[in-house]
């Protein structure tokens, strides 16, 4: 009795792209989100460069502005998980996810579409910060491949943080809850690190935390890739500080390996009944 629908069969990639385009439109229409992704990173670069730039000196010499950029890239990338978490929690609380689930789409499309959009949106602050950095005097001193490697590392870490965001957005039921958790967890993680200051000034336990903190290693890895001054050599022999790129890649892959399955499970459970 049932007539066959005239629509074509879909595919998971096409579905994900439709969902990703939706997120890209969202970001354009939410001034506060757009500010987070554009003006805020530029402001951070300018503020830190000119406010702290004079007060903090890099122990081994070198420009604080050059030291700063690696840290500020790292901080922004870690905080990047925040947007996707809020978006997902909002979709759950408004019933948008339910609507998607009654459509004949691949179930994975909702998450992969969001993740794809998050990575694309995440490129925006990276580009703007690079430009702002160049304006205040940041320069790279390595070959093209090293620099590209640095940017690739950022995208990889951003992709990893996307899964952290999906996990948060699936576990926490309201955008407000996401906001609360994100700030209490992400602020210490990004500040107890070599993001803005050399870690060797920190007292005992905090110093150890900072040394093993992936934000520190990401900052350090980027400084190494770009040939910018870091504060590691000679001041600390912690393994992560000696091998920042490797340690950062291990972190990114570990986050993806752990958070992606957990996030998919949490999302399916949160939207199942």
């Amino acid at each position: 009795m049932s007539t066959s629908p005239t629509a074509r069969r879909g595919n998971a990639v096409g579905d994900a792209w439709v969902i990703a385009r939706r997120s890209l439109k969202h970001i354009r229409r939410q001034p506060e989100m757009l500010t987070d992704a554009t003006i805020q990173p530029i402001m951070f670069v300018l503020l830190f460069a000119y406010v702290f730039g004079g007060a903090i000196s890099v122990p081994q010499g070198g420009s604080y502005k050059e030291f700063l950029l690696g840290g500020i890239f790292a901080q922004t990338i870690v905080f990047g998980c925040f947007g996707i978490a809020i978006g997902l929690a909002t979709d759950r609380s408004t019933g948008a996810i339910d609507r998607f689930r009654t459509l004949p789409i691949a179930r994975s499309a909702v998450l992969t579409g969001r993740a794809l959009a998050a990575v694309l949106i995440g490129l925006l602050p990276i580009i703007l910060m690079s430009a702002a950095g160049l304006v205040v005097g940041w320069r790279t001193h390595t070959g093209v491949l090293d620099v590209l490697g640095g940017y690739a590392l950022m995208v990889l870490f951003q992709f990893a943080m996307t899964w952290v965001g999906i996990l948060m957005g699936s576990l926490l039921s309201t955008p407000q809850a996401v906001q609360g958790v994100a700030f209490t967890v992400l602020f210490p993680i990004t500040f107890l690190a070599s993001t803005f200051v050399p870690v060797d000034t920190l007292p005992g336990v905090l110093r150890t935390f900072a040394e093993w903190n992936p934000t520190t290693s990401l900052s350090g890895a980027l400084r190494a890739q770009f040939g910018n001054p870091d504060v590691v050599a000679g001041t600390s022999d912690a393994w992560p500080l000696q091998h920042p790129v490797l340690y950062t890649v291990i972190w990114a892959l570990t986050i993806i390996a752990i958070c992606a399955p957990l996030a998919v499970r949490a999302f399916n459970r949160a939207t199942g009944d």
Partner: peptide, 29 residues
């Protein structure tokens, strides 16, 4: 099937037209 949930789950940040086009695309029209 078509399903309209209790709280009108249309997308607030999209226009009316964009909402319908998106649903059509997800129906693979």
């Amino acid at each position: 099937i078509g399903y309209a949930a209790q709280d009108a789950t249309v997308d607030e940040l999209l226009t009316g037209r964009e909402n319908l086009i998106m649903i059509g695309e997800l129906h693979h029209l």
